[in-house]
């Protein structure tokens, strides 16, 4: 049985959809953040599998940049969550519906 790139692309699609469902269903800001990380990881797997199939390194270059942006995003996003939590004593996005600080 030969494993083609399509198998890994399908796995990435499944992971992406699970992450999207988690982002839409959960209310805890931390869990939503983790779902976003899951979606980013799925896209990274797509880049690597497709780049390997086409025979270039461009996919891995793209993954490198995605990783850097994700790391920056996590740092700032978690700082925002902590700042909001100190102000409001909650991490649920449903309770953060008004715009004033």
């Amino acid at each position: 049985m030969i494993v083609t790139s399509g198998w890994y692309l399908t796995l990435a699609a499944v992971l992406f959809v699970i992450g999207a469902i988690g982002l839409l269903v959960r209310r805890n800001a931390l869990i939503m953040f983790m779902a976003i990380e899951l979606m980013l990881n799925a896209v990274n797997l797509t880049f690597v599998a497709a780049g390997h199939r086409i025979g270039t390194l461009d996919g891995q270059v793209a993954v490198f940049f995605v990783l850097v942006v994700a790391a920056a995003e996590v740092a700032v996003g978690l700082a925002i969550i902590v700042a909001v939590f100190r102000q409001r004593r909650t991490a649920s996005v449903d309770e953060l519906s008004d715009l004033r600080g």
Partner: peptide, 20 residues
């Protein structure tokens, strides 16, 4: 390859379901 894919896929999907 197939065995490795099955292990990787089951672990990844189980972990993802665990996250959600």
């Amino acid at each position: 390859d197939a065995v490795l894919f099955v292990i990787v896929a089951t672990t990844a999907v189980a972990g993802a379901l665990g996250v959600v």
